Each structure stands twice: as C-alpha cells, then as structure tokens.
Simulated assay, not measured.
Amino acid sequence: MAVYGYARVSTSQQDLTIQQEALACAGCEIIRSEKVSGSKLANRHELETLMQFLRQDDVLVVTRIDRLARSIRDLQNIVHDLNAKGVKLRATEQPIDTSTAAGKAFLDFLGVFAEFETNLRRERQAEGIAKAKKNGVYKGRKPSIDRDQVLEMNNAGMGPTAIANELGIGRASVYRILSSNK
C-alpha cells in the first residue's frame, strides 16, 4: 500500500506549498502537483499520471475535494475509477470516507458546492465584462494582424499564401480579412 498526494492550483501565480506541506504531513510518499484549472480533466497530466500509477489498496490524498475536481461529473468519474481499482480517497481538510453511504453523500455534496462555486465565479466574470463593455472600458484584445497591411499586400498582387508567409500568420486569417472586405 502506497500513499500518494495530489496538489493543484488554478493559475501559475498561485503557490502549492501549503497543500504540499499538508500532504507530506498526511504521510504521502509521493506528491504530484500541477498548476492548471480544475474545471476540466483535460491537460491535468499529473492527475492522469497518478491515476495510471494507483493500485489496489493505495490511498490518494488531497487537501480538499475541489483540488481534485470542480465538476460533479468529473469528481464522480474520478471516484468511480478509484473505486474500480480498489483505491481509497482521503482529504486532509474534509472527513471523506467513500466506504459508507453517508461518506458518499458528503462527497457528492462537496462536489456540488465546488461546481456551484465555479459557476458563480463565471457568472460574476461575465457580468463584470458586460458592464465594462457597456461603459466602453473593455474592448477585448487588440488586433494582432494589421488589416490594412493585408489589404495593401493583396492590392499589390500578392496572394493569400504569400501574405500569410510574409506576415507570419495563418492563411485562414488572410482569407477572413479579404472576404470581409468585399
């Protein structure tokens, strides 16, 4: 039986130290960490590696369930995969015991709240962007392609492929500019 830890933060600016220390204190022999959003399972390479490594009677430890998943569906899929392998799941800050009905229900409640938190954050962000746009503050990213330069090059007889190569952009971008100018 081995005890593995998994630590995750959402952005590269955040620090993993507190989670890593808590996992080490919980007896984790190996701790895998990553700085990536928990709202999706995609691109979570360290978690994927752990899931491949885990064997029957191993224990996966996280500090909180929202470090493992921010979506109830992803959480349930992870827990299902762990159960199928005979792996136990523990959280240092939450009383998780997936071997009892109450423990399973509590785990699901935590997953629901993590997803709820994520959805609230998205709504607030969308409201903030809408307000900023209304006030003329938020205008999006500045264009990275000089539209006039593309049109000038085309008028000078250059084809879309040559323009794309010259400017270091994709041909689709050149075609999009040329078609919107007609």
Rank of each mutant, 00 (worst) to 15 (best):
Q52N: 10
T92W: 05
E115F: 14
L178M: 14
G159W: 01
R44D: 04
D15N: 15
A2V: 05
G111A: 11
D57A: 07
I177N: 06
M158S: 12
V79Y: 03
A172V: 10
E29W: 10
L41W: 07
F109D: 08
D15T: 08
L54S: 05
A164K: 03
R8N: 01
G27W: 04
E34I: 01
S144D: 03
V87A: 13
N154S: 12
L178Y: 04
E115A: 10
S99D: 14
N83W: 11
D148E: 11
S37C: 05
S144N: 11
T161D: 15
D66V: 00
I30E: 03
Q14E: 11
Q52M: 12
S33Q: 13
E127N: 06
T100P: 00
L54P: 00
L89H: 03
S39L: 14
L178P: 00
N154D: 07
T118M: 13
E93I: 01
D146Y: 13
H80T: 09
L107Q: 04
K131Q: 06
P95G: 11
I145T: 10
Q20A: 15
D97L: 07
N135P: 02
Q149K: 14
L54T: 02
I163H: 07
Y175G: 11
F53D: 10
S179L: 12
S144I: 08
A26S: 09
P143C: 14
R122Y: 08
R67L: 09
L60F: 01
Y6M: 01
Q149P: 02
D66Y: 00
A26V: 00
A156L: 03
Q14T: 00
Q13E: 12
L89V: 02
I145N: 02
S37I: 00
L151N: 03
I30D: 02
M158L: 15
N77M: 10
N119D: 12
G157Y: 06
G168S: 09
K133S: 06
R176C: 11
A102T: 12
Y4D: 03
S173G: 09
Q13S: 07
A7Q: 01
A22C: 12
P143Q: 14
H45T: 11
Y175E: 10
S144G: 15
L120W: 01
E166G: 07
V79K: 04
D74I: 07
D97G: 05
R44S: 07
R124M: 07
Y138H: 07
I31Q: 12
S33F: 02
D146N: 15
N77E: 12
M51E: 11
